[in-house]
Amino acid sequence: MNIILIVILILLLACALTVRSIYKQSIQILEPSYKRKPLIIFPDQFKVPFENIRFKTADGVEIKGWFIPNEESSKTIFLLHGWGQNRGDILKNTVYLRDLGFNLVYFDFRAMGESGGKVSSIGYLETKDLEAAIDYMKSTRSSVCKSIGLYGISMGATVAIYVAAKNKEIKCVLSEAAYYSFNRVAARWAWINKKIPYFPVMPLVLYFMRKRLGFDPQIYSPAYNIDGLAGRPVFIIHGRHDSLVPAVNATYLYKKAKEPKDLWIIPGAKHNQGAEVGGEEYKYKMAQFFTKNM
């Protein structure tokens, strides 16, 4: 009898340790302090004028960013980085848009770069950051916000799609490497980076994530929001060799999206490598999209 009791206790301890480990994994995804990279790329390296900006979100998180003005333009593009990145990471591939007639706004999402906050929801909470950025620009520089466009990469693309679906003032969205489903991308990230199998572990990880956030991030996935852009142009870009967010995500989103819409799968590009692999064609297509639709 004692042996049976010992075996039961050992099994219970093993289960408790396993659950604790799974909980820690879920927190690692949501609180990516190890992903807070310092900024090493700045606008003055590209010899463009800029202003440091800061503002607070509706839930009190301080966000820091840059405003790069084009004094002759009333058109502004908000440029949104991905998870584990900061605003400098997307500056180098997009700053040229200023000379094509656009004001540019870059900022670090919460828990990343120089912005405050500890929790990243990989989507929904970050929509508060973008909404605050738009409100800030409209309240302090309304003349440059006559026409608003969004560019987002990976998580930033998810945020752009969600906010644009709710905010009809936004003229158009360029989405690169967006995931289709939060649950799917979280599971894929966990497998690629932690070798966590979907069954039986991932459902528990997702449960802990929902408990930590206080909401279900799945319902804020692009799959449920991209059709809200109906009547406004959306350009979906994706790398053919994206292992984190496979290119099929882009085809699913394209099918869900309403007209006008366009899709470009870049041969040879991995996750977030559209600009790097697409080169001048990437810049041309991006410039053409915003020039035409703003």
Rank of each mutant, 00 (worst) to 15 (best):
A111H: 08
A111F: 09
A111R: 07
M112T: 06
E114R: 12
E114T: 10
E114P: 12
S115Q: 04
S115L: 06
G116W: 08
G116T: 08
G117Q: 03
G117A: 01
K118T: 10
K118F: 13
S120K: 13
S121R: 02
G123W: 00
Y124G: 11
T127E: 04
D129F: 11
L130D: 11
L130F: 07
E131D: 07
A132E: 08
A133I: 11
A133C: 06
I134G: 04
D135W: 13
D135H: 14
Y136D: 01
Y136F: 15
Y136M: 03
Y136V: 07
M137C: 03
M137T: 13
M137F: 09
S139V: 09
S139C: 03
S139F: 10
T140A: 10
R141C: 02
R141D: 05
S142F: 11
S143I: 08
V144S: 03
C145A: 03
C145K: 01
C145Y: 04
K146V: 09
K146M: 09
S147V: 09
S147D: 14
I148N: 03
I148R: 08
G149R: 02
L150C: 00
Y151G: 00
Y151S: 02
S154M: 08
M155W: 05
M155D: 01
A157F: 07
T158G: 09
T158F: 14
V159L: 00
A160R: 01
A160K: 01
I161Q: 05
I161T: 11
Y162M: 05
Y162I: 13
V163N: 00
V163Q: 00
A164Y: 12
K166Q: 15
N167S: 03
N167E: 11
N167V: 01
K168W: 10
E169V: 05
I170L: 03
K171C: 13
C172S: 15
V173N: 10
L174H: 00
L174W: 12
L174D: 02
L174Y: 11
L174N: 02
A177D: 13
A177K: 11
A177G: 08
A178I: 02
A178P: 03
Y180G: 05
Y180T: 05
F182I: 12
F182E: 05
R184S: 13
R184V: 08
V185W: 00
V185G: 04
A186D: 08
A186S: 15
A186V: 15
A187H: 00
R188A: 06
R188L: 12
W189P: 01
W189C: 08
W189K: 11
W189I: 15
W191L: 09
I192G: 12
N193K: 12
K194D: 12
K194R: 12
K195Q: 10
K195S: 08
I196M: 15
I196D: 09
P197G: 04
Y198P: 10
F199A: 02
F199M: 07
P200C: 03
M202W: 07
P203L: 15
P203K: 11
L204D: 03
L204I: 06
L204M: 02
L206A: 01
F208N: 10
M209Q: 13
M209D: 03
R210C: 03
R210P: 02
K211C: 11
R212S: 14
R212G: 01
R212D: 14
R212W: 09
L213F: 14
G214F: 13
F215N: 05
D216Y: 05
D216S: 09
P217I: 05
P217F: 01
Q218N: 10
Q218W: 11
Y220G: 00
S221R: 05
S221D: 08
A223V: 13
A223M: 15
N225F: 14
D227Q: 13
